[in-house]
Write a protein that binds this DNA or RNA. Structure first.
Lengths: 142, 142
DNA sequence: CCATTTGCTTATCAAATGATAAGTAAAGGG
DNA sequence: CCCTTTACTTATCATTTGATAAGCAAATGG
């Protein structure tokens, strides 16, 4: 397909990452949640508290659509909005208790699949893997 | 979020990969193509010739939906179906000339963004990156 | 042969997502 | 103050995607 072998590896690698994350994250959401809503919850879980604009930016979706999905998550009592004291236009969004519980369970399932995947790898190699993750994260996937 | 630091890195890393691939692949498709259709073309480009069932399996979509999207791509003259001589139920699918041209252009754009991203990295480090890609691909993202 | 399975198609429906126009209230800046 | 900008909401619409039922022709296997 291409003569630059590093680029070729990059493409094959990213395809594999997408494939594996799909396998590891499928069926982790029992609650009636759409894929986009799950992605939003995931983002909130990692970055909370966040504003609506931040979600909109990072998830590459328009403000109106973000607002709508957030309202739905709110109705399902999975997250809550807190108006900022400083700037009362801003909404700080965090997971509700129910949302935290949901995401904890989801992350636990993913982690157990991850552990399954690496369980036969010796300690020394795990160290190498950790270094490889660090290297690629800082140099290529930043 | 979690006490297993390797898992934490794994999560952060995969999120970053998704983020970066999104940035690198957005706007690479001028032709009136939906995201799913682009994904299918990408898969065909890398794995051709493929059967409809293979696309269906790998892209995690049902046969009817795969068939529909493929028909649309066919109507846009981006791919073509060739009935197998051995088993006349099977359809071998490959890109048309127009489809090849489209995907070549897309891949070139992605590659130039990739090159942009790594242009200041010295040769020795690139070697390390290549090794890191190989390691993670074989041990974690297989 | 005939029944069953495989590979794919057609049709239809519901749901999810994306895009746009128009609005509100608060903040900031002359 | 008033004008503009910012942060977000509401409403509406088109498109995309997902799911299901029903079908067909070729192959397979008694």
């Amino acid at each position: 397909m291409d003569k630059n072998p590093l680029f070729h590896k990059f493409v094959a690698f990213t395809a594999a990452v997408h494939q594996v994350t799909h396998e590891m994250t499928k069926d982790v959401k029992f609650e009636a949640i759409t894929p986009v809503q799950y992605k939003i919850l995931e983002y909130i879980a990692i970055s909370q508290p966040v504003t609506l604009s931040e979600i909109s930016d990072c998830m590459h979706m328009s403000m109106p659509n973000t607002s709508r999905e957030l309202r739905k998550l709110n109705e399902k009592q999975l997250c809550e909005k807190i108006t900022d004291g400083e700037d009362r236009r801003k909404q700080f969004i965090r997971l509700s208790e129910k949302g935290e519980a949901l995401m904890n369970e989801a992350f636990q399932r993913i982690e157990s699949r991850f552990v399954q995947r690496i369980k036969n790898i010796p300690e020394a190699e795990l160290k190498e893997i950790e270094r490889a993750l660090d290297l690629l994260h800082s140099k290529v996937f930043y």
